[in-house]
Design a protein around this nucleic acid. Sequence first.
DNA 1: GTAACCAGTATAACGCAGTATACCAATATG
DNA 2: CATATTGGTATACTGCGTTATACTGGTTAC
Lengths: 133, 133
Amino acid sequence: MKEQLRAKKVKEVLSNPRNQKEEVQALQDTIYVIGGKWKLPIINSLCNGNKRFRDIQRSIPGITTRMLSRELKEMEANQLLKRTVDPDSPVMVEYTVTSYCKSFGDIILEMIKWGKQHRKKIREVSKAANNNG
Amino acid sequence: MKEQLRAKKVKEVLSNPRNQKEEVQALQDTIYVIGGKWKLPIINSLCNGNKRFRDIQRSIPGITTRMLSRELKEMEANQLLKRTVDPDSPVMVEYTVTSYCKSFGDIILEMIKWGKQHRKKIREVSKAANNNG
DNA sequence: GTAACCAGTATAACGCAGTATACCAATATG
DNA sequence: CATATTGGTATACTGCGTTATACTGGTTAC
């Protein structure tokens, strides 16, 4: 007689082990920090050597000054980058990634790799679908 | 006389090397696939052994049935998981991650680690701010 | 027969990420 | 002088990711 039904209550107790919530929260924290449309592209741009506001903006097609400004502030607050001002007469502002930020350079590289593969894979799948249909 | 100004136009040309756009796009693809509030938590839940809709829902505090349903569909379309139906009389639906999805299990683990560290770090910073203020 | 579970769907509304556009003060170019 | 650049801010708007709440249709439990 369906012992799934007896197992049900066991599962109900076990389905949320103590550390699971903490992991989910950590995951969502990370997503929150680097999520959204622009943060990773910004980090990537900085890592590619862009330091000036307009240079960063030019290197990221489609981003508006408003978004770039907002994201840079937020990322500074999150210790992901540093803003330094050189007050010599054409005032210069430079943004640089912190070592803390570099700590997930690997994640970014992995994500770039993954994204390229994914694009290939999806293309193959839709090709196959066309051939079968 | 500020040769920064002469360097300006050079930068304007060099500021967007060919591969930069492609990398940004790959990055944004990846963010698109695993981004949003719920997708990574869902993957994490599946990887922790949850297979049934309600189990997954219970394991992710705050997610609604609507969101879970939508995300699962989208992720199935992106080949990240498989949905199998056992039509025996209490119909059973099982979700399992694909090997493709596992291909960024490492990224997820890294992100969990990073999120935990970040929480610590931000806590330390705000402590320090309180002491200095 | 009613209460609870499963796997979702339907409908409506909210809030904020992101967009569009204009503007500012300072400096440089011709 | 007009025009362009740099590093942004202000205001207004829109879309969509997310939430809230209710509901369905089938199965099992008491």
